[in-house]
């Protein structure tokens, strides 16, 4: 016998279910009067924030090609200088006018999510190499048993993407484009997330 290590086990995940919006975006779900506004709603910046304003929209698509209409998508990202608005940020103080976190329900009719944010700066990988600018995504919905982590990269960052230590870790190179958004206009990006099948988005075990 040896001493027990004594670690606890992480609580098991359960699906967010069809009514995740009641809990996470109640005003969007039509429940008014409890919270003034939904957490994570609206632009991630205020008018004084530094950086290029961008909009990211997209859909979460199932293995049958159907957009999910009950998903909840969250993003987390660095500010224009590559700093996170978090107490765990040790490299400097992030822009106080940029909160870095957003939450968007898919539209109930179309499934489209939307984030109004800024283009992030570069953040170092664990060994100090700079990663290409990216936005971290987390997706939950009915039928998703454990929330899915992925990342969105920017199509114009060709050189930085080619040297990105995370993208370089993807063995099947034809899957890398699933993480790169499409530019649809000035400051307008589209990032569709495919849960399964052809073009399945790369998801991370972080």
């Amino acid at each position: 016998m040896v001493q027990p290590l004594g670690y606890l086990k992480e609580s098991p995940s359960q699906t967010a279910g069809p009514y995740v919006h009641i809990g996470c975006t109640p005003n969007f779900a039509g429940i008014h009067g409890i919270f003034e506004q939904d957490l994570g709603a609206g632009p991630l910046y205020d008018e004084k924030a530094r950086g290029e304003r961008i909009a990211v929209n997209g859909m979460v698509i199932d293995g049958g090609g159907n957009p999910l209409k009950d998903a909840l998508v969250e993003i987390w990202q660095a500010d224009a200088d590559g700093l996170h608005n978090s107490p765990s940020e040790t490299r400097g103080t992030a822009d106080p006018h940029f909160r870095g976190w957003g939450r968007s329900p898919g539209d109930m009719e179309t499934g489209e999510f939307l984030f109004e944010t800024i283009k992030p700066g570069r953040v170092p990988f664990r060994d100090g190499r700079l990663m290409a600018p990216h936005i971290t995504f987390w997706i939950v919905a009915r039928g998703i048993n454990l929330g899915l982590h992925t990342r969105m990269y920017f199509p114009e960052e060709v050189e930085a993407n080619a040297a990105d230590p995370v993208l370089l870790r993807i063995e099947h190179r034809n899957r890398v484009p699933t993480l790169i958004a499409r530019k649809e206009g000035e400051g307008l990006y589209r990032f569709d997330i495919r849960l399964q099948g052809e073009g399945e988005t790369v998801f991370f075990d972080i």
Binding site: T15, D62, G63, G64, N66, L68, W76, Q77, A78, H84, N85, S86, S88, E89, R91, R99, G100, W101, V123, P124, F125, R126, M131, H134, T136, A141, R142, G143, I144, N145, L148, H149, R151, V166, R169, I170, R175, L195, Q196, G197, E200, T201, V202, F203, F204, D205, I206
Partner: peptide, 24 residues
Amino acid sequence: TSVLRSPQRALISLEGTASEITGP
């Protein structure tokens, strides 16, 4: 509902970077 909403490819394992180990 999990049948069409479950990724089939292996997840890419990644030790957390600042992008994942920080939070608001």
